[in-house]
Design a protein around this nucleic acid. Structure first.
Length: 513
RNA sequence: GGUGCUAUCGUCUAGCGGUUAGGACAAAAGAUUCUCAAUCUUUAAACCGGGGUUCGAUUCCCCGUAGCACUACCA
């Protein structure tokens, strides 16, 4: 009775993988790993009209980047795939068999109503539903003779197969997160489970058949599926599979950061954050959507952030590695209510992971970004890798992303071309110019360029002259950085070196009033 | 309209009958510093409403309200 844990992530290749889908995949993965089970990837491409080329590869690459490993299915070496094929469009024969089975057992019937006819019905009758109350007035095999049906099919009439829902039955869905959900079968319509137009089943049939055949033990999916879960229970029952039916867990939705409704791609565009793990190039529309990877996120941070959007352990711990999550995750502790997507907190998570990374590792991540900026500036990098590592250590605490390191550190590589107006207004006073001239001659005399020596010499010079420390140091900072920002001044002079420091003070004296 | 799900600071959440209702993000203030940031400290900030059950409800039940989801030959 206790089946091996086998879960599946079953996206549709209709575009980029949405961040909510990523979280669903993550929860499935965590659950599988925790129970020593299997994580399958299945592609639900039963809607041929919505197929987007490249979407499948995109999904695989996204999961790989995030560290969500697939044990079986799409993107996995074939010898491990014992329950394939894993693309629903390649499982037509299988579905044929089960559609026939339902037809023969009387749990399904053939319907010839065209989309136009149905639309007309919906117009005529308010709240029209194709079910026990209306199916006898429609054009289907329930009201037609077998000869009539066969002839229509032989003549090439398009038809669908509908699942026949018996009315007035209580259906109970046992959900691991929400408990027992009860509904009356009368509110369920006779869902289309197969369409002859493209010879493919719809989601509902394919989903039940595949989950059964693939021996899925737990269906962990978004809350949008909760309303159709009773139908699925009915279908398992119709097939006689109710005893081995998987357990359900319906996850709360990811909501818009502001306002109401579920998170959509538009929200990301509107509010300026990615809703996709990877940058996505839509071949059909030519639209490029930003991704977390390209925005400079670490996959660990995305995982950590997403894991906590809808799940939380007892206690105040917030930083979780994938291994931590695998140990501590539980479906019982998944929230029941939707979670607004708080992008700011996502940045904070990335900051945490950045802070805990070795400076040398960050430096190697920063190097290509740095080189790109430098070549854009037409400048050679005069600093050693060791110095870059040092700079990274100095500045990483003030950024959320590696890419932001450039704007924080550019003055180490390129002398200021202009001076920040605000800083000048606040920190560059009447005396500044003459003080900088004096400072210049003090600095020129120094053979010992160490931070400690410079500090001693300059401070005593300031004290001797009776200048304001803040005034002198800030003016000096403006000369070197071009603005009133950056780390401790002797860190800057240390990296710049004597020659460059003096050069910068001189050129500042040339331009500044 | 119908059906279902949900409801603690602005946000993510802890709490599983008795708490000064805790933490984090964001916000504000202070400390520190040559600047900016970081950091540290502090502050402000919540149990949707009404009935029950109970000695006692944020917690359990019911109703209301609100939000969300679903209501396709899409998933």
């Amino acid at each position: 009775m206790n089946k091996k844990v086998r879960v599946r992530f079953a996206p549709s290749p209709t575009g980029a993988l949405h961040i909510g889908g990523v979280r669903t995949a993550l929860y499935n993965y965590l659950f599988a790993r925790q129970h020593g089970g299997d994580m399958l990837l299945r592609i639900e491409d039963t809607d041929s009209s919505r197929f987007v080329p490249g979407a499948e590869e995109y999904i695989i690459e996204s999961l790989r980047w995030l560290g969500i490993e697939i044990d079986e299915g799409i993107g996995v070496e074939s010898e491990l795939n014992t329950h394939g094929p894993y693309r629903q469009s390649e499982r037509r024969e299988i579905y044929h068999k089960y559609v026939s089975e339902l037809l023969e057992s009387g749990n399904a019937y053939i319907a010839f109503d065209t989309p136009e006819e149905l639309e007309q019905k919906r117009l005529e009758i308010k709240n029209f539903q194709y079910d026990a109350t209306t199916r006898n007035q429609m054009r289907n095999s329930l009201v037609m003779s077998k000869q009539e049906v066969d002839k229509l099919i032989a003549d090439g009439a398009k038809y669908v197969v509908r699942f026949k829902v018996e009315p007035n039955e209580e259906v109970v869905v046992d959900d691991l997160i929400r408990g027992e959900v009860r509904i009356n079968s009368s509110i369920i319509d006779d869902k289309v489970i197969y369409k002859s137009s493209d010879d493919l089943p719809t989601y509902h049939l394919a989903n039940i058949v595949d989950d059964h055949l693939m021996e899925i033990s737990h269906v962990i999916r978004g809350e949008e599926w909760l309303p159709s879960a009773p139908l699925h229970v009915l279908m398992y029952r119709a097939f006689g599979w109710e005893q081995s039916m998987p357990k359900f867990a319906h996850l709360p939705l990811l909501l818009k950061p502001d306002g109401n409704g579920k998170l959509s791609k538009r929200d990301g565009d509107r509010l300026g954050f990615p809703v996709f793990p990877l940058e996505f190039h839509d071949e059909k529309t030519g639209v490029v959507s930003s991704g977390y990877r390209e925005s400079g996120y670490y996959p660990e941070a995305v995982i950590n952030f997403l894991a906590l959007l809808g799940w939380h352990a007892t206690g105040d711990k917030e930083i979780y590695s994938m291994d931590d999550l695998i140990k501590e995750f539980s479906l019982e502790r998944v929230s029941k209510s939707g979670a607004k997507f708080d992008y700011e907190k996502g940045k904070w998570f990335n900051h945490q992971y950045l802070m805990n990374r070795d400076d040398s590792v960050i430096a190697s991540e920063f190097k290509p970004i740095l080189d790109a900026h430098l070549s854009e500036e037409g400048v050679e990098c005069k600093l050693t890798l060791e110095q870059i590592v040092h700079i990274v250590g100095l500045l990483k605490e003030r950024v959320n992303f590696v890419s932001e390191l450039w704007e924080q550190s550019n003055y180490f590589f390129v002398a200021p071309k202009e001076y920040d107006e605000k800083s000048l207004k606040k920190r560059w006073k009447e005396d500044s110019k003459s003080q900088m001239r004096e400072l210049l001659s003090v600095l020129e005399k120094q053979d010992d360029w160490s931070a400690s020596n410079l500090d001693t010499v300059v401070m005593s010079w300031i004290a001797e002259k009776g200048y304001g420390v803040g005034l002198v140091m800030n003016a000096f900072r403006i000369c070197l950085v071009g603005a009133a920002r950056g780390p401790h001044i002797w860190e800057i002079t240390d990296i710049l070196g004597k020659e460059e420091t003096i050069r910068r003070v001189k050129s500042a004296l040339d331009v500044l009033p």
